[in-house]
Simulated scan of single mutants.
Amino acid sequence: MGNTQTAKTKVESGVEDAACGDAKVPRTERGRRTLRKLLDAAAEEFGEKGFHEASVSSITRRAGVALGSFYTYFDSKDALFRALVADMSEQVKSSARSAISEGMGALEIERAGLLAFLNFAAEHKEVYRIIDEAEFVDPASYRDHYETIAARFVERLQAGAARGEFRDGLGEIEAWAMMGMNVFAGLRFAVWGLADKSPEEVAAGVNRLLAEGLLRR
Rank of each mutant, 00 (worst) to 15 (best):
E45S: 15
G193N: 15
A112I: 03
L107F: 15
E12D: 14
G31M: 05
T148Y: 03
T34P: 04
D78V: 01
G186F: 01
G186R: 00
R156N: 12
M88W: 01
R36A: 06
L115M: 13
M104S: 10
A79D: 13
E29G: 11
F81S: 02
M181N: 12
A211N: 06
K24I: 04
A203D: 07
E172R: 13
E108T: 13
E48R: 15
G171M: 04
F136E: 10
Y142R: 07
F153C: 02
D196P: 04
V206F: 09
G160P: 04
E165F: 06
V15G: 02
G213C: 04
P139C: 01
M181Y: 13
R216I: 08
F189T: 00
R156W: 04
V137S: 03
R129W: 04
L170M: 10
D144R: 15
V56I: 15
G47C: 09
E133F: 07
R143G: 07
A83W: 00
E147A: 11
H145T: 14
E90S: 12
D196V: 14
K10P: 00
A42T: 08
W176F: 14
A23W: 01
Y73L: 06
I131F: 06
F46K: 01
G164H: 10
V154W: 02
R62Y: 11
E126G: 09
L194Q: 15
G213V: 02
S95F: 03
D40H: 05
S58A: 15
E108F: 08
V202I: 15
L67E: 15
A175Q: 02
G50K: 12
D40N: 12
V137L: 02
V56W: 05
T4G: 03
R217A: 11
A204C: 08
E165P: 05
N119C: 13
A23S: 13
F166S: 07
K10C: 00
A54Y: 03
S141Y: 02
S69V: 10
G160F: 04
F117L: 14
G171S: 06
R61Y: 14
H124K: 13
L80H: 07
E90Y: 04
